[in-house]
Nucleic acid binder design. Structure first.
Lengths: 184, 184
DNA sequence: GGTGTCATGTAAACAGTTACATGATTTT
DNA sequence: AAAATCATGTAACTGTTTACATGACACC
């Protein structure tokens, strides 16, 4: 479970509450977890037991009390060790490709509609990702190098969607272009 | 759970056993499930109860008996309806981006090593995907249009990894190029 | 004699999502 | 008056992976 490492990473910038972490992860483009309560609060308890974080309870009048989590030096060591571990290749979950694989039973119109719908979905994602990047709600740029890295992380996600968009357009063209050959 | 739809899709080409389905899904590039026993055999029981498939037990001397699954007309209808449903945008699970987000604590050498390792992983994926495409172990091309679609599905996966590779190279260049500005 | 393939299935563990629960304050 | 935000947490469910179990045969 590397969400714990993501949490350690976020806490390495700033002490935060579970609620704050939840929002950061939910709104992040590259931290791909949903950021639901169960994941966050359970992970925090585990990180606490492992000694990677400590917490300080802050009672507030007229609102629920906060637990502010701070990363320990053991947590920082664990984070560094994980960052240095052998990277995994990216994984793609493209349900649309599975759908498309059996789409030859559709008429030309039905297939075109399907492709247009996918094109729209992908375009929406690009707009959303550009908005996330523009707003930069949670961006770490403590050094110029870190700024460069984070910029490239956002670029990665946008490029991925742009490649997908270019691919749909190519497919639409190919289907049109080979119309003559495809029909008897 | 759309693995059931993937199974229906595969069976729409050919009646097969659970064991065959398992291998096809495990070796597929775009059917992203692991293809383990539990998923396959449980799904088949469910599909049977739903009336989307039927099975025929084939006893064999000197090897375990086979259950050959065949899609029903209800199954074909269910498949078509699913294929026509609104597509979901692609999802990316790139653990490396999370790792990279906290990589500013690394030295130039450590960071370069990490990037080279990722570059290698991605290159390996490209080779593997090209091999899968070349072998074409399970490819459906009943019509010229279906052939075109399947070709573009394989192309999609390869393009995705190629975009990733181009991105790492860009990052490596950017880190080198801005060396002067990054150091004091 | 050990490993791999064929062929089925189950058990246990882990990961992840949705929904529920509380309760005060602020915004619409 | 209703909905959203802050802030914590739990329960139930679904999805996914790993490992175990059987047993014959083929290959090295």
């Amino acid at each position: 479970m590397s969400i714990k490492h993501a949490i350690l990473g976020i806490l390495s910038c700033n002490p935060l509450t579970g609620y704050d972490l939840k929002k950061i992860i939910r709104d992040s483009s590259f931290m791909y977890w949903s950021g639901n309560n169960n994941q966050i609060y359970k992970s925090l308890v585990e990180l606490l037991n492992e000694g990677f974080v400590t917490n300080e309870v802050q009672h507030q009048e007229s609102s629920p009390s906060k637990k502010i989590y701070t990363i320990t030096k053991e947590g920082l060591a664990e984070l560094k060790q994980w960052v240095l571990s052998t990277p995994e290749p990216p994984e793609f979950k493209k349900t649309f490709l599975v759908q498309l694989a059996w789409a030859d039973q559709l008429s030309t119109d039905e297939l075109n509609t399907l492709l247009s719908q996918y094109e729209y979905e992908v375009k929406m994602q690009i707009v959303m990702q550009q908005e996330i990047r523009r707003r930069g709600t949670f961006t770490s740029d403590r050094t110029p190098r870190e700024k460069l890295i984070w910029d490239m992380i956002y670029q990665n996600i946008i490029s991925a969607y742009e490649t997908e968009l270019a691919w749909v357009k190519q497919l639409q063209t190919n289907l049109l272009g080979s119309k003559k050959e495809l029909l008897p």
